[in-house]
Design a protein around this nucleic acid. Structure first.
Length: 477
RNA sequence: GGCGCGGUAGCCAAGUGGUAAGGCAGAGGUCUGCAAAACCUUUAUUCGGCGGUUCGAUCCCGCCCCGCGCCUCCA
């Protein structure tokens, strides 16, 4: 079966392929850098990362643009509060965002574009809209008149035909002719940052940046536009109105929206005290891989109930996969190949692929991997897993990890981990090896008292010693 | 009020018109000098409730109950 996505525009699952050639042109709404990005935002960015990786796995070239909104009401307010310039203020959070993203192993889009660096493109877009008769000016601000775009509402499937001028009280500080009209260019207000432009001194409205930058880098019609559900209206609806009023062509063929994340079944909010940034979670001792796994494991169109129990479970799940990987690498195998094991490997990959092709059903894809791992552990137990099955298993893990990317441990260190300090004595690898050697000797002599003493000492230093069938193994906790 | 989403085992979560994937937890077992770790086995006669269609429904239809989102800035 071909690759399929649920398209918000048509409310249907559709087969996907790029409009032209082999390149997928994709735009995603990135962060507004007024603060540290929270874990709910990262649910969306993780979904976009899985999407990226899956498109590439399916052989497509990617041209992915993500914006960074670095001029906006909250930013201006916060920067002013701290007495900082826009640049100084946003730089800090932009940097933090990419650091966090890297910890979650989110790939960098091909183009990361900042709103403030694209003012001329936005001006140009607004001017085109004016030429097409879609705008009006009120008190120095330029607005988009939605009555000029009859299809308004087609993405969010709302019918706005009943909305009339003056029907609602304008809650914004600006005067609009129609409640649904939105601002393209905001007139300069007292001390706020502004740009000198043919439209007058001012700054861009929020929606125009995405239309202008998307079309600049990707052309008039995108293959995919993605973001969180809450952006569908009004943000994406407005993007469509602007873009299509300029080009008279479809702005994006596919619209993908990821559902929100809840914390312990509740909406995340500061007043509930369940508002977490990635930094908060890392400080609590959770691993980035576990967080990534949890965020990726629930299919993106389903609300994700983020719980600490679930986060712990995710960590254990990853551990199990790493154990399997380790077992593969360290077990002596008979030469030859077990046919059944081979078949299970191809079956696992096939199911994994079909599941992700099916609108990125990550839960089902993971199930395929676990079924395989259990079967192969069984085969290993019964000596039915042979030398030539090894690379097949490695291939299954490689395919899995190429998308989920959780097998390689993140560096534990840094100021974040309080654990390392709690161990009374830090031991170097060579010290450990020496002690283990001594313990091995003691065990050989069946001096278990001495052996256990050493094991206890190592344990105090945070070293876990395991005696396995294939010899001794140790790891730092 | 309008539009939309969801209610599946202790928790998270797939799925299908023919009788329930997977992960974690729990229980049992294997291995081991003992541990630990790991691995294996096992865990829903049942899929919010009530009707209907059907030979047969968790999956289709209707009604009801519950939770949630958007309609205003928002991933």
């Amino acid at each position: 079966m071909a690759l399929r996505f649920y398209n918000t525009l048509t409310q249907e699952i559709e087969t996907f392929s790029p409009l032209t050639g082999n390149t997928v042109r994709m735009y995603t709404c990135g962060p507004t850098v007024y603060n540290f990005v929270h874990i709910g935002n990262f649910r969306t960015f993780t979904f976009q990362d899985i999407l990226r990786r899956w498109l590439r796995y399916r052989g497509y070239d990617l041209r992915h643009v993500m914006n960074v909104t670095d001029v906006e009401d909250k930013i201006i307010a916060n920067a002013a509060k701290e007495g900082k310039s826009l640049e100084d203020y946003t730089q800090r959070y932009t940097k933090a965002f990419f650091e966090d993203a890297a910890k979650l192993r989110l790939e960098q889009p091909e183009h990361v574009v900042k709103a403030t660096e694209h003012i001329p493109v936005m001006i140009e877009a607004i001017q085109q809209l004016s030429q097409n008769g879609c705008t009006y000016v009120s008190e120095g601000s330029t607005y988009f008149r939605i009555s000029t775009f009859p299809e308004y509402g087609k993405l969010s499937h709302n019918d706005f035909s009943g909305i009339r001028s003056g029907a609602r009280v304008d809650i914004d500080e600006y005067d609009k002719a129609d409640a649904r009209d939105f601002v393209l260019w905001k007139a300069r207000k007292n001390a706020e940052p502004y740009w000198k432009t043919p439209l007058g001194d001012g700054r861009p409205g929020w929606h125009i940046e995405c239309s202008a930058m998307a079309m600049k880098y990707l052309g008039e019609t995108l293959d995919i536009h993605a973001g969180g559900v809450d952006l569908a209206f009004p943000h994406h609806e407005n993007e469509i109105a602007q873009s299509e009023s300029i080009t008279h062509r479809p702005f994006s063929r596919f619209w993908l929206h990821s559902e929100h994340l809840h914390i312990e079944s509740q909406k995340m909010s500061k007043s509930l005290g369940n508002f977490y940034t990635l930094r908060d979670l890392l400080k609590m001792g959770y691993r980035p891989e576990a967080i990534r796994y949890l965020l990726a494991s629930v299919p993106y169109r389903k609300k994700l109930n983020f719980t600490f129990e679930g986060l712990t479970a995710a960590g254990k799940t990853i551990k199990r996969l790493r154990e399997f990987e380790l077992r593969l690498a360290s077990t002596k195998l008979r030469p030859g190949r077990n046919e059944q094991a081979s078949e299970r490997a191809s079956e696992a990959i096939r199911t994994f692929e079909e599941s992700l092709d099916d609108n990125l059903n990550t839960a089902e894809a993971l199930a395929a991997v676990f079924e395989y791992v259990r079967a192969m552990n069984n085969a290993l137990d019964h000596y039915e897993f042979q030398e030539e099955n090894r690379w097949e298993a490695a291939r299954v893990l490689q395919v899995f990890d190429g998308i989920f990317d959780v097998l390689k441990p993140s560096p534990q260190g840094g100021a974040d981990t309080a654990d390392s300090a709690s161990g009374s004595a830090y031991l170097s690898d060579s010290e450990i090896e020496t002690l283990l050697e001594e313990r091995a000797q003691a065990r050989k002599m069946r001096d278990f008292a001495r052996s256990d003493e050493i094991r206890a000492r190592l344990q105090n230093a945070g070293i876990l010693v395991e005696d396995t069938k294939d010899g001794l193994r140790w790891k730092r906790r």
